[in-house]
Amino acid sequence: MTTTPTTTTTATASTTGGTSATAGSTATAGDPPVRSDTKIAVLLREDLEPWQRLNVTAFLVSGLGTDLPEVVGEPYADADGTPYLPMFRQPVLVFEASKETLTAAHGRALSRALPRSVFTSDLFATGNDRDNRAAVRAVPADRLDLVGLAVYGPRNAVDKVIKGARMHP
């Protein structure tokens, strides 16, 4: 896909997790935070340009909510009743690592059969979804030139997958 710099907001949160208040939520300010037993992690190759990091992150997490509906919370609404789309129930933690660490993390995600999405360097040169899928399909898993990986699963399994990565600055 041909990508150009876009305005994308990516939020990260502490590794202690938590949930967002949603429309209809009964949580109050005094309630203790809920620690999720699952984790969403995005691992980016450390040599990406800032706009590429945002773009890759947005693409990587876009599939999680469609394929794993349990990760998406209820719709939001403001005090005026204006509706907003639902978001993930838990934080999305963004990490960075070397190409070698990213490749190793991909192998660990595959061996654990965790839900995952990939973004390869080839996708920066394509212009549409069909060509994106063809670019990934053309390369064996162990030869993908990964620039990003998103993974979802039990906290401890995800932590093992992203071992060696560091929180994105």
Rank of each mutant, 00 (worst) to 15 (best):
P83V: 11
L60Q: 03
S98R: 07
L68Y: 12
E74H: 13
V42N: 03
F88Q: 11
L93W: 13
R89T: 14
T101R: 09
Y76L: 14
D78I: 07
L54R: 10
L93R: 08
E46L: 12
T26K: 09
M87L: 14
P33I: 03
G63N: 03
Q52F: 04
L54W: 01
Q90P: 12
T38H: 13
V71Q: 06
A77W: 12
S62W: 01
V42T: 06
Y84L: 13
Q90M: 14
D80M: 12
T101A: 11
P75I: 08
P69S: 09
L48R: 00
Y76N: 03
T66H: 14
T57I: 08
P86E: 04
E70G: 14
E96A: 11
R45I: 08
L102D: 00
A58I: 07
S62H: 06
T66C: 08
G63F: 03
D37M: 02
T82R: 14
L93C: 13
V34T: 03
L54Y: 03
A58G: 02
G81C: 02
P86F: 12
K39N: 05
P50I: 02
L43Y: 02
Y84N: 09
D31F: 07
E100V: 15
I40R: 04
V61P: 00
G30A: 12
L60R: 00
P50S: 02
D47K: 04
E96C: 10
Y84H: 14
Q90V: 15
E46V: 09
L44T: 01
L44K: 00
R89V: 15
P83N: 11
G63A: 02
V42R: 02
P33S: 07
V42L: 08
V34E: 00
A97V: 01
G73N: 09
F59E: 13
L85K: 15
V71E: 08
L43H: 02
D37K: 03
Y76T: 07
P33H: 02
I40Y: 12
V92M: 11
Q90K: 12
P83F: 03
P86Y: 09
R89E: 12
K39P: 01
T26E: 14
G65A: 09
T101F: 08
E100G: 14
F59M: 12
L102K: 05
E70R: 14
R89A: 13
S98H: 08
P33K: 03
E100M: 15
P83L: 09
S62V: 06
Q52M: 03
L44P: 00
V94F: 07
K39H: 09
P50C: 02
K39T: 06
L43G: 04
P91L: 10
L44N: 00
L102I: 00
D67S: 15
L48Q: 02
S62C: 04
Q52K: 01
T26P: 06
T57Y: 01
L68Q: 12
F95R: 10
D80I: 04
W51V: 00
T38L: 09
Y84M: 10
